[in-house]
Write a protein that binds this DNA or RNA. Structure first.
Length: 558
RNA sequence: UGGGGUAUCGCCAAGUUGGUAAGGCACGGGAUUCUGAAUCCCGCAUUCGUUGGUUCGAGUCCAGCUACCCCAGCCA
């Protein structure tokens, strides 16, 4: 592509480059995307997906998809299915390398046994509350558990008992034996296995003990031969534990995985917390995980965001270690840029105002040639007749000086058609404008004698007799954020009551009557739209992906 | 008051061994236009949280200070 755009490097690439220079990871770069199947993926995950798969591609390596399914109480197959669909849709492939942490339960168990044998883990009988008390605080060291010095044999037997289900949930845990006085709380003998008599979505009731993230993750990485385990900032404190485990179990320093942390994505006007998104779904604030207002991958897909736009966005925002809040305008810019190239142009009138062209022959219809892609070519025919509809917003009886649209006595160009002049305004008993009576310049269409005449405005329109009715759904931000773009503490109270506006009776040119869900269009002068899956042959439904940039709106505001 | 992090334009973000501040978004101005879109120009940090120090020279090195984020789940 353009070589004048210097792609910014990031600290992760620098770290990998350095590792490579130092002769580490001769086996090649290997990353992984490790979602927990406890919810739908959102934009924040898209950043991680692009990063992990992107890094692998960039270094000629591989990236695995791995479900981090070590907590059966929160996970479900519904989520593993949606996650795969979303990653694929984003344009990435894991080939045969789809794994589950649960694939390794047996090996993980063996590693835990080995840790016990090496005197580096013990079974602890403290209750959760007691353990909290023993852990100490941020400023005070913890105290050693009275069960810390059990013999290896005793630990082995107890751990086997845990595995065999002789204990109840919470009765005992397996802990790593590290350092209760460590200033890093993560190192104060962290729990690595807990008892939970819960059936797992993949392993069923085979296990009643499940490994904790801190234990399962580094080992899963090592088992898969991951070289760079990229995760978010909050795991930075866990890195010493990650390394401790691999070291304690004897993994080779030159080849074992290295954890690198980056800052998660925050977007203005956007919720990027799985927990909060779930609240929206379960509380009925949206129609589901794929509601077009949701920042989930499935929501954005339904809304009409393209995978290319999302990938471009992830590339542009970069990767760093500082917490940041990206302006959602950046995302919108990326969709517009993609859709401007790739969406067919079409005319649709959202809020119709009837216009009768009094000097146009009754009963006549012309099929005017119109370009569909300004940049790529492609054409279609648009029918024109005596009665048409224009946008209500495009007429003003008392227009300000800078209003380049229709006004009494004024002229305007109808896109792909003629220049018309407003001769009369028809109102109902209440004074509402219900119709405009205009005349047209018969020579002003493309190729005509007066085609070159300059009029200030150009309007989109549809012919009354051939227009197709459509439902159009307009979206606004789900979340109203403060001036700084921050999400208020009570985000439910900050939800935008006007995030969805449904227009039942929009009119669209007949060329789009056959269209499939997911097809993108630019409705001329209105924005980018995408056919919603609710569409049927009898009832078209469009989602507005994004409006066009609107400098008139700025002028209007002053 | 413990530990781990981060501080470069309104928002993201480059800045490899110190050599005299990339790029994108947003914004402003102009050109162009049968989409007030797109496109095209042009503008937009004498300054890198702050205070000192080292140096011919520091965003990059040193010291102090300040601000913000994360950590006390048998969640991930």
């Amino acid at each position: 592509m353009a070589e004048n755009t210097t792609l910014a490097s990031n600290f992760i690439q620098n770290a990998i480059d350095e590792d490579l220079r130092n002769g580490k990871y001769k086996q090649g770069i290997h990353t992984r995307f490790p979602p927990e199947p406890n919810g739908y993926l959102h934009v924040g995950h898209a950043k991680s997906i692009c990063l992990n798969f992107g890094l692998a591609a960039q270094y000629g390596g591989l990236c695995n998809l791995r479900f981090d399914d070590t907590n059966p109480t929160k996970e479900d197959v519904e989520y593993v299915d949606s996650i795969q669909e979303d990653v694929k849709w984003l344009g990435f492939t894991w080939d045969e390398r789809k794994f589950y942490a649960s694939d390794y339960f047996e090996q993980l168990y063996e590693y835990a046994v080995e840790l016990i044998r090496r005197g580096k883990a013990y079974v602890c009988d403290l209750t959760a509350e007691e353990m909290r008390a023993y852990r100490g605080t941020l400023t005070e060291p913890g105290r050693e558990s009275p069960y810390r010095n059990r013999t290896v044999a005793e630990n082995l037997e107890l751990f086997l008992g845990m595995k065999n289900g002789v204990f109840a949930d919470g009765e005992r845990v397996l802990r790593a034996k590290i350092d209760m006085s460590s200033p890093n709380i993560t190192m104060r003998d962290p729990v690595i296995y807990r008892i939970s008599h819960t059936s797992h979505h993949r392993t069923g009731d085979v296990w009643c003990i499940y490994p904790m993230y801190d234990f399962a993750h580094p080992l899963s990485d090592a088992i898969e031969g991951i070289t760079h385990s990229v995760c978010t900032l909050e795991f930075e404190d866990h890195r010493p534990l990650y390394d401790w485990l691999l070291e304690s179990l004897g993994f080779d320093v030159e080849t074992r995985p290295r954890q690198i942390e980056f800052a998660r994505l925050n977007l203005t006007n956007t919720i990027t917390s799985k927990r909060k998104l779930r609240q929206l779904v379960e509380g009925g604030y949206v129609r589901g995980w794929d509601d077009p207002r949701m920042p989930t991958i499935s929501g954005m897909r339904r809304r009409g965001y393209t995978a290319a736009a999302i990938r471009d966005f992830c590339e542009r925002i970069g990767v760093a270690k500082g917490n940041s809040l990206v302006d959602v305008a950046m995302l919108e810019h990326c969709v517009r840029e993609d859709l401007n190239q790739n969406a067919a142009r079409v005319m649709a009138v959202l809020r119709p105002l009837r216009v009768v062209i009094t000097n146009y022959p009754e009963g006549q219809t012309e099929h005017l040639l119109a370009e569909s892609y300004p940049s790529k070519g492609g054409q279609r025919y648009v029918p024109f007749s005596r009665e048409i509809y224009i946008e209500q917003e495009d007429f003003m009886e008392e227009a300000p000086k800078k209003f380049f649209r229709l006004k009494p006595g004024g002229e305007v160009r109808l896109k792909h058609a003629y220049i018309i002049k407003c001769e009369e305004v028809v109102k109902d008993a209440q004074g509402n404008i219900i119709e405009l009576r205009c005349t047209y310049d018969p020579d002003s269409k493309m190729g005509g004698a007066t085609a070159g005449r300059k009029v200030k405005g150009t309007l989109h329109w549809v012919a009354a007799d051939t227009a197709v009715k459509a439902e159009v759904r307009l979206y606004d931000f789900l979340l109203q954020t403060d001036e700084n773009g921050e999400t208020p503490a009570d985000f439910i109270a900050a939800l935008n009551p006007n995030s969805l506006e449904v227009i039942e009776n929009a009119l669209i040119e007949p060329s789009v009557c056959w269209t499939a869900a997911g097809t993108h269009y630019q409705f001329l002068r209105e924005g980018y739209f995408c056919v919603d899956p609710d569409t049927t042959p009898e009832h078209l439904v469009f989602n507005r992906v994004a409006g066009l940039r609107d400098s008139w709106a700025k002028v209007k505001k002053g």
